[in-house]
Design a protein around this nucleic acid. Structure first.
Lengths: 156, 156
DNA sequence: CAGGTAAGCGTGCGCGGCGCACGCTATTCT
DNA sequence: AGAATAGCGTGCGCCGCGCACGCTTACCTG
């Protein structure tokens, strides 16, 4: 199980350390207080519940609710309900699929696009600010490792 | 706000990259499927809902439910209910505080201690395994950065 | 070309977790 | 000693979720 390609392998203590850190991070980032703080001032539609739908939509382009569901990680019906709220808030709109008249494509409105970019910017600024005290190049290296970790790591 | 100590500062694009990666990681690690897979075979008491209480208890030692609540991130009553389930499963027990006869201290039983170490080991092994293909030293460096990120990062 | 099957969507329903507030017991303060 | 406070468990209402159903539209086969 260890050292598949490199003779030195990876000490299991490292995995333990990463696991603990991820656990802490998971708890911290799910604090409702943080979410409310980050979404403060935006329209009433964007929410810690509805945002994942908005974000996934911004990432992958217009898609149906059923297609979006596995990416968000909840049931198809849940995506539909969140989409209904986002639509009421004017952040997305339902568009008829030209190729299939049953399908309703979810597409971001201009306000929706604005909201997601705004929130992404806020979060990035929040992170960048607290990384300003890191030695030069450290943050960039960390970002690269983190990207690789998410791409081909244990949670791929 | 940027470059407080180092003249080069940190490009905001780095923050953006980290933010996106964390978002993905957050979604992946909250998949119920993953939790069930990791807790498979253990007693019926350990659960993705009850585990944070168990874990916090293992980290900080015997504490009251009210003290535990802010660390878990939910209301005091929620901790009480989860503790009740864990007690029924024989993973923790309520002990009378010798100094205050109102207080019920939550303390891990032997089986509880065993369960949390087992789960920690499983998760660490899962992570270590998928890091075996990384170049030597990379995983260790990533673990160090991640630890620092959680300790003094934007979510401290 | 027609009828049956399947896909896609929204919604009703039951379940479960959460936060708030209340009651009860033990403690502390005046 | 009596009042005020802290600590705990629980009832209650709310909300999100997954499942299953009905309805519309597309596909497929004879």
């Amino acid at each position: 199980m260890r050292g598949a390609r490199y003779s030195s392998g990876v000490d299991n203590e490292v995995g333990q350390e990463i696991a603990d850190a991820l656990g802490i991070l998971l708890r911290r980032t799910t604090r409702a207080q943080l979410h409310q703080q980050l979404t403060a001032g935006m329209g009433e539609g964007v929410d810690e519940v509805t945002y994942p739908v908005l974000s996934a939509l911004a990432r992958t382009g217009p898609r149906s609710a059923a297609d979006l569901a596995p990416d968000v990680g909840i049931d198809r019906s849940g995506v539909t309900r969140r989409a209904t709220r986002l639509e009421a808030a004017g952040l997305i709109r339902r568009e008829a699929d030209p190729h299939d008249r049953r399908a309703h494509l979810l597409v971001l409105t201009e306000r929706g696009q604005l909201a997601v970019t705004e929130l992404r910017t806020r979060l990035a600024a929040h992170i960048t600010a607290s990384l300003s005290s890191w030695p030069p190049g450290e943050a960039e290296a960390f970002a690269r490792r983190l990207r690789r970790f998410t791409a081909e790591g244990p949670f791929a």
